[in-house]
Design a protein around this nucleic acid. Structure first.
Length: 200
DNA sequence: AGTGCGATTGACT
DNA sequence: GTCAATCGCACTA
């Protein structure tokens, strides 16, 4: 197993939300549960910026989005469509509301636990899409605001693996500021979400 | 207090 | 390919 075993230090995160979104491709998300460890390699991200009408922080800080305004490396978790939790990484200095949405993982460890959480054994479907990813890792609002750069229930790890070639596209599922090239993905990975036309 | 709307998913034609 | 489910939250009054 190629387990990462300690969190990436906050100082190692690149500054700038777009830089972080690209850099996170190929890093690992690690979830510690009572039953064991679940982890996956990040293969798809999106950036949400200040002045971006698609961002939850567009109209400033609110009860839901306050974790977007934490320092780099803290988690912002929210519920979308009443059904799916979304995992984001706050990406700027404290007080600035920007974040990176983690959209898809390539399963690395704890796969049987992911299968149980997701109700399928289809490896490709375990964490392809932000809602599926959160379900596979048992992520919900209880993890909103946790430090992903510290040991605990959820953290970011190095992965002994090349990030691969990174593609860029418009973001998925938004209607405002929909033309900006702020989605990043591992080119050629079968674990990325989205239509073929955005994964070239 | 009421209303409209998603950073999605799964089921179905 | 289409489409409804589902609910917390932000916005209006």
């Amino acid at each position: 197993m190629t387990h990462p075993c300690s969190p990436i230090q906050r100082e190692a995160l690149p500054s700038g939300t777009v830089a972080l979104a690209r850099w996170l491709i190929g890093k690992a998300v690690v979830r510690e549960m009572p039953e064991g460890q679940v982890s996956g390699r990040i293969v798809e991200t999106e950036a949400y910026l200040v002045g971006d009408a698609a961002s939850h922080a567009y109209r400033g800080q609110t009860g839901r989005n306050r974790s977007m305004f934490l320092d780099r490396g803290f988690a912002y978790v929210y519920l979308a469509y009443g059904t799916s939790f979304m995992l984001n990484v706050a990406s700027e200095t404290a007080g600035v509301g920007e974040a990176v949405l983690i959209r898809a993982l390539e399963p690395l460890s704890g796969i049987s636990m992911m299968e149980r959480h997701r109700g399928t054994t289809n490896l490709r479907d375990l964490a392809r899409g932000p809602g599926r990813l959160a379900q596979a890792l048992g992520i919900d609002r209880a993890l909103d605001g946790v430090d992903l750069c510290a040991p605990g229930p959820l953290w970011l790890g190095q992965d002994a693996h090349e990030p691969g070639e990174i593609g860029t596209s418009i973001r998925i599922g938004i209607t405002k500021d929909a033309d900006r090239p702020l989605r990043f993905y591992r080119r050629g990975s079968r674990f990325v979400s989205g239509p073929k036309s955005l994964n070239l």
